[in-house]
């Protein structure tokens, strides 16, 4: 084994893109300077109901992201999980991104299709708040993807050419509060639905794609060219590199799930896998830019 010094640990290159670590930083505090600025497709604003975390105020989150060279972050609101006034949630999300996002935050409003007149929320997200997409939480909002209302939602999303972000989970179901138990979203119905909506683009958030129960389905979904997944919940040694052997690298996006997760988890995954410069650039930025157009 080569000798491990503080300097060489902190300067392990990520291909030629080199997420350089600042060797003069705090002892082993990884402070990458990304020569390729990242697009983080999965950050959260507002507060988790059961915990305060550093970065759950927008200014703090933006500061964290800036430190790692994130150029753009796609933000949803944690309020959308339990609040019934989704219109208000989306309005606050857009205001917060504008007021405190430092030009970095792109709001993705929530739509809850079990609420009366949800189509108006979708319209407002698109037309009034100028959002590039929406974020869904089917498990928290109490519907399945094989219900007619989801098909209706896909129809409208396709008509408006919006990006659809679908959060598969939000926390480990084993550690939930007894009165707030929410399982993962069953993605199986997407296989049947996607051929009917060929223009829809779906980004799966918070899914460990390498889990054996998920992988086969995700391989099939991403082969359609319409489905993407991000890496915040990806686990296993060299997970990003291994995932890129199972699904097209063009379908893998950089997402951190900050501030609920330590941002560094996603960042370090990019270091753990041996990836080429082109692969790193694709995951960190270019794939996301292609999705958003």
């Amino acid at each position: 084994m080569k000798s491990l010094t503080r300097r060489n640990f902190l300067s392990i290159p990520l291909g030629a893109v080199a997420l350089q670590f600042d060797g003069d930083a705090l002892a082993e505090q990884v402070v990458p300077r990304a020569s390729e600025e990242a697009v983080d497709v999965n950050v959260q604003l507002s507060r988790w109901s059961c915990r305060r975390v550093q970065g759950d105020e927008t200014l703090g989150l933006v500061k964290q992201l800036r430190r790692y060279g994130v150029r753009e972050a796609w933000a949803g609101s944690l309020d959308s999980l339990l609040h019934k006034d989704i219109s208000g949630v989306n309005l606050r999300l857009a205001d917060e991104c504008r007021a405190h996002g430092d030009g970095m935050l792109l709001p993705f409003g929530a739509v809850n299709p079990t609420l009366p007149d949800w189509e108006e929320d979708l319209r407002r997200c698109h037309e009034e708040l100028k959002m590039p997409g929406i974020r869904l939480h089917p498990n928290y909002h109490g519907y399945r993807l094989d219900e007619p209302v989801f098909e209706r939602l896909l129809t409208l999303v396709e008509e408006r050419n919006l990006i659809l972000q679908l959060a598969v989970g939000m926390e480990d179901p084993r550690t939930q509060l007894p009165f707030l138990r929410v399982g993962a979203v069953d993605l199986e119905p997407l296989s049947r639905l996607l051929p009917h909506f060929p223009q829809v683009r779906i980004i799966l958030l918070n899914v460990n794609a390498l889990q054996s129960s998920s992988l086969e389905l995700l391989e099939a979904l991403t082969r359609t060219g319409q489905v993407y997944c991000e890496i915040s919940w990806l686990e296993g040694l060299g997970g990003v590199g291994r995932l890129a052997k199972s699904i097209s690298l063009s379908r893998i996006l950089f997402g951190s799930y900050a501030p609920i997760f330590y941002f560094e988890a996603a960042w370090l995954k990019m270091q753990e896998s041996p990836l080429t410069q082109q692969q790193i650039r694709g995951i960190l930025r270019e794939n996301a830019k292609r999705v958003i157009g």
Binding site: E28, E235, L237, G239, Y262, F263, A265, L268, Q271, E272
Partner: peptide, 20 residues
């Protein structure tokens, strides 16, 4: 590891708001 990544678990320490 190998069920988890080194990366996700190292991040708990590297990203923590604690002293060096």
């Amino acid at each position: 590891a190998g069920g988890r990544s080194y990366a996700s678990q190292l991040a708990k320490v590297i990203g923590a708001d604690i002293s060096e």
